[in-house]
Design a protein around this nucleic acid. Structure first.
Length: 416
DNA sequence: TCTGGGGTCCTAGGACCC
DNA sequence: TCTGGGGTCCTAGGACCC
């Protein structure tokens, strides 16, 4: 059996741990620049606030119901997540951390009552971190996802734990699960399924194999088997990223090339830092610029380009310089850009780097990057490239940012 | 006034190899 | 007039996830 553990309303729950007086009132957490709603407490969901809603459209509702709005505080959520995951790890020899707020646990061969065990896990996590969780248990990942959904949806009856361990429960669960709520079936595919008069997961599992394979590829077929109780997806161990991105929307549009160069250089440096963290080098760099797609008075512009490096690199200096070169390639004057991003692709392990016979391709800036990383880690962001901006003029809009309660040394001293 | 960020996998088609 | 068979690698685009 496999368990899927999911933190309830994770970001909102993290904020509440440090503001317990908000425990029964509506809370939302906003995306960068305080743009969209990306997490909602149950009370906010009950008010009909949809996921991804732009907050400026909800001004009245926020005022009327005194909804607490938080700017996103990813250092806090990341740290809370690792606390939850570390507790979960103690309950099974095999865990897959699936996302910041979800994990699969392997429960194969556990000779005990799984329901009792799940309640023990739940209690422990809630006691140690203050984060409420839901647990679904079933023979496959897709069914565990389904069970988890039931645990959450019928919280009172299930007490946050649901197990699919026989055919009757499986059929009942699938009949209940709408096709658009199946894990792996998104908006496009559910539309196509509904067009075939397939409305719930049970009907999906009764479609013809060949048809599913043809229409939804092997991915769809695997999913169908998973829902029928046959394992086709397995627990995975963490792997190095195959691509890394740093992209941001701007507070205000930027049309000026110098200003964009500074942003792109900074994004490139972030990518390079993430590369070095996982000991990879990149072979290619992609840069894009985008106008504001919601602004109907301006033409919708999306420009991007990908360039190859002469040899693999993880140097901030080199990557920033090529990123700027790529930017100048796609930049056009007079367009107000709302968003830009840098992606590094073709990642390879840094230790077996492919050199270039026709140019000096010895790994560059190794010692320098080492020193930069160490100093920036120890003293905060103290060393930057000259092409980055050292003033705070690009700070995101974050009007209601909570403190870094668990990771900021000054906060920790205060708390203790 | 104000609309996020970061990933993965699969397929088809083109270019290339012998 | 007639033009093979079997591969690999790469990329773009489309779908999905949180």
């Amino acid at each position: 059996m496999i368990a899927l553990i999911d933190c309830n309303n994770f970001y909102a729950s993290c904020e509440r741990v440090f503001q317990p007086q908000l425990n029964h009132s509506p809370v939302v957490v906003l995306s960068n620049n305080d743009g969209c709603v990306i997490a909602r407490s149950d009370e906010s969901k009950a008010l009909g606030i949809p996921m991804g809603a732009p907050i400026f459209k909800l001004k009245e509702l926020v005022k009327q119901h005194q909804i607490s709005c938080f700017s996103s505080n990813f250092p806090l959520y990341g740290d809370m997540s690792s606390r939850v995951m570390s507790i979960l790890s103690s309950f099974s020899p095999e865990i897959e951390i699936y996302s910041i707020d979800e994990a699969f646990l392997a429960l194969d061969g556990f000779q005990l009552d799984l329901e009792t065990y799940a309640h023990t896990i739940k209690k422990k996590v809630e006691q140690c971190t203050g984060i409420p969780i839901s647990i679904g248990i079933a023979p496959t990942k897709a069914l565990a996802k389904t069970a988890n959904r039931i645990a959450k949806k019928f919280k009172e009856r299930t007490k946050g734990v649901y197990i699919i361990d026989n055919e009757e429960k499986r059929i009942k669960a699938l009949k209940w699960l709408k096709v658009e709520d199946i894990w792996g079936i998104g908006r496009q595919l559910s539309k196509r399924l509904q067009a075939q008069h397939c409305y719930n997961a049970l009907e999906f599992t009764r479609l013809n194999d060949q048809w599913v394979r043809k229409e939804f590829s092997v991915v769809g077929l695997r999913l169908k088997k998973e829902l029928q109780g046959e394992k086709t997806l397995f627990l995975e161990q963490p792997q190095n990223k195959k691509s890394i991105a740093t992209t941001r929307s701007f507070k205000e549009n930027i049309a000026d090339l110098d200003a964009l160069e500074e942003r792109v250089a900074t994004f490139a440096v972030h990518c390079a830092e993430k590369l070095r963290k996982q000991k990879s080098s990149c072979r290619m760099i992609s840069v894009f610029l985008r106008s504001n797609p919601f602004d109907k008075s301006q033409p919708n512009v999306f420009r991007n380009t990908t360039i190859s490096l002469p040899y693999d690199s993880d140097s901030s200096i080199l990557i920033a310089s090529y990123a700027k070169r790529a930017l100048r390639h796609i930049y056009k004057e007079g367009i107000p850009y709302k968003k830009a991003g840098v992606l590094v692709l073709g990642l390879q392990p840094s230790e077996n780097q492919q050199l270039n016979l026709f140019c000096d391709s010895k790994p560059k800036h190794k010692d320098l990057m080492n020193v930069m990383d160490k100093m920036n880690k120890r003293y905060g962001n103290t060393l930057q490239l000259g092409s980055q901006n050292t003033t705070k003029k690009w700070l995101m809009r974050q009007e209601n940012l909570s403190k870094r309660y668990t990771t900021d040394i000054n906060e920790l001293i205060q708390v203790s």
